[in-house]
Amino acid sequence: MTAPTPHHFIALIEDACTSCLICVQECPTWCISLDSHHEEVSEPGARRPRTVSVLDDFRIDYGLCMYCGICVDLCPFDALEWRPRVGYQAEGRDDLVHDIARLDGGTSDG
């Protein structure tokens, strides 16, 4: 058995996210929000274009998050996972909202 991953930081694996909104809707503290849009993808050989959802932004407000991990547990595509990280110091309230660039799964401070 491996040691449990410390519950420090929730990383988003952008490519795995389908914008299904399950994490957003199940979050007890309403700390997650996301934006996405639809795109039609034409694949060679396909009879008609396929509609896919494209993630535009994903935000976690660490001023509200209570690290319960429900989002990590419920994500059907394993697009959220715990990563060890420290460095949550923020200059202001708004700085605690981590957008898609800051949820990229970096393991260093920042």
């Binding site: 909104l21 996301l34 934006d35």
Partner: peptide
């Protein structure tokens, strides 16, 4: 509620 957004 952020979950009200229905982007899909």
């Amino acid at each position: 509620w952020p979950g009200e957004v229905e982007p899909a």
